[in-house]
Simulated scan of single mutants.
Amino acid sequence: MGLLSKDIRSLDDLLIQGLGELLYTERRISKTLAVLAGKVSDPALRHDIEACQAAGSGNIAQIEEVCRRRDCRPHVTESPAIDGIFISEEELAGEIDDDHVLDIAIAGTVHAAAAYTAARYASLIGRLVGVGRPDCGRLLQAGMTHHQRAAESLRLLAEKRLTPRALAKVGRDPVVVAIAS
C-alpha cells in the first residue's frame, strides 16, 4: 500500500488514482490561487491568476464527468508535488519585501503549478486513449490545454513585463542585464 494511496494492481487502478490526484490538484490550485491573487501588485498578473482560478471549476467538472463515464469513484488523492510547489511559494514569499520581486516569485509558482498539471493531464489522456476511451481523453483535453496556455502566458508575462519592471525599480536597465547574461 502506498503512503498516500491504496495499492495499484491494474491499469484501471492507476487511472482511478490519477483521476483522484488530478481532482485534488485542481481543487488545491483553485484554493491557493484565490490567496495568491490577493498578494500580487501587478494587474496583468492578477488577471492571469484569476483566469486560471475561474477555469478550475470547469476542469473539475470535466474530471468528474470522466469518472461518471468510466463508472468509477476516485478517492481524492493528495499530491505531494503540487503541495510542494505551493509550500515552497509560502516560504519564499515570507522572505520577499519588494512587491515587484514578489510578483515574479508568484508568477513562477503559478507557472510551475500549471506546467505540472498540464503534464498530469497529458499522462491521463494517454492512458485513457490507450484503454480505448478516447471520449474520456477528449474531455480532459480542455484542462490540459488551459494549463499549457496559462504556463506560457505566465512565462511571457514574467519575461516581458515583471522582470523588467523589477529591474527598473532598482535602476538596472533590463536590456543591459540581458546582454551581460
Rank of each mutant, 00 (worst) to 15 (best):
E26R: 10
P80K: 10
K39M: 15
T117Q: 00
A81P: 00
V40L: 09
A115V: 15
P43C: 04
E95K: 12
Y121T: 01
R70L: 11
L22P: 06
T117W: 00
V110C: 03
I106E: 01
S123L: 10
I16E: 13
D83N: 13
A34G: 14
S10A: 06
L23I: 11
L124M: 04
A122R: 13
A113S: 04
R120Q: 15
S88I: 06
V110Q: 00
K6C: 09
R127Q: 15
C52T: 07
T109H: 03
L36H: 02
H47K: 15
V66M: 05
L22C: 07
P43H: 05
I63C: 07
I60Q: 05
A61I: 05
C52L: 09
T25Y: 03
L11R: 11
R127S: 14
T32S: 11
R9N: 14
E26C: 12
Y24R: 06
V40H: 02
E65S: 06
H47G: 15
C67H: 11
A114T: 00
S10N: 04
D99W: 08
A122D: 12
L15W: 06
A34F: 12
G18V: 01
D98L: 05
E64I: 08
Y121A: 03
R68S: 11
L92F: 09
L124Y: 05
I63S: 01
I29R: 07
E90C: 09
V35N: 09
A105S: 01
S123Y: 09
L45D: 03
H75R: 15
I104P: 01
A55F: 02
P74D: 08
A55T: 04
A61C: 06
I125C: 03
E65F: 01
A37D: 01
E89D: 10
